[in-house]
């Protein structure tokens, strides 16, 4: 059974602090929709929302001794949610900064460049040769030789940011040159 009335959450939390498992389960089930609503305002992605909700519930569990029964429960819960949402946004932000997103353009080239046979085809070689040096080098290192950004940067002397830009522009140019259309 879930308790959705916020007025009763405080009483359930007091019972939970005393070790009442049913009251605790009812409380956690009851607060979940509220937490989901808060989390979904920050995360458009459904799985991020559920991860955040579970993280908030876990933190609630770990710090449940900090709830003061003489104070309202909802601000206490909202405080925990605020920290966990901010943490997750930071983690997601760091992940996005580290990753190079693969879009349809990258996929199509990667698929055709899976084996070196594909590279033997004259049009691809010619198109690669037609690219500016920086773009060609970026594609060779990152896509064909599958080096990491760090390794490619060390080898080419280019910064990671310019490698990302070069590979992106190079693939666009390749698609244009090979007549596959583009943006």
């Amino acid at each position: 059974m879930r308790e959705t009335d916020p007025q009763k959450w405080s009483a359930l939390m007091v019972l939970a602090q005393d070790g009442d498992m049913d009251a605790y389960q009812s409380l956690l089930l009851g607060v979940t929709p509220y937490l989901r609503a808060i989390a979904s305002r920050a995360h458009p992605n459904g799985s991020d929302v559920e991860d955040t909700v579970q993280d908030v519930l876990l933190t609630l569990h770990e710090v449940r001794q900090t709830y003061d029964p003489s104070r309202p429960f909802k601000p206490w819960l909202a405080g925990i949610a605020r920290y966990r949402i901010a943490d997750r946004l930071r983690i997601l932000g760091r992940a996005v900064a580290r990753e190079v997103p693969l879009d349809a353009e990258h996929e199509s080239i990667a698929a055709s460049a899976q084996s070196h046979d594909a590279l033997d085809s004259r049009p691809v070689n010619a198109a690669l040769r037609a690219l500016p040096e920086g773009q060609r080098q970026a594609i060779m290192l990152l896509r064909l030789e599958e080096r990491s950004l760090k390794e490619a940067a060390a080898e080419s002397g280019m910064s990671i940011a310019s490698l990302k830009v070069s590979v992106h522009r190079g693939i666009k140019a390749l698609r244009r040159l090979l007549g596959e259309g583009g943006e």
């Binding site: 602090q17 070790g19 498992m21 389960q25 979940t32 579970q54 519930l57 569990h61 001794q65 900090t66």
Partner: peptide, 18 residues
């Protein structure tokens, strides 16, 4: 999440409010 809640509830030992 519902299974997760059950796990937490089962681990709800009594705690003393600080």
């Amino acid at each position: 999440t519902s299974a997760f809640i059950k796990t937490l509830a089962n681990a709800a030992e009594p705690v003393r409010a600080i």
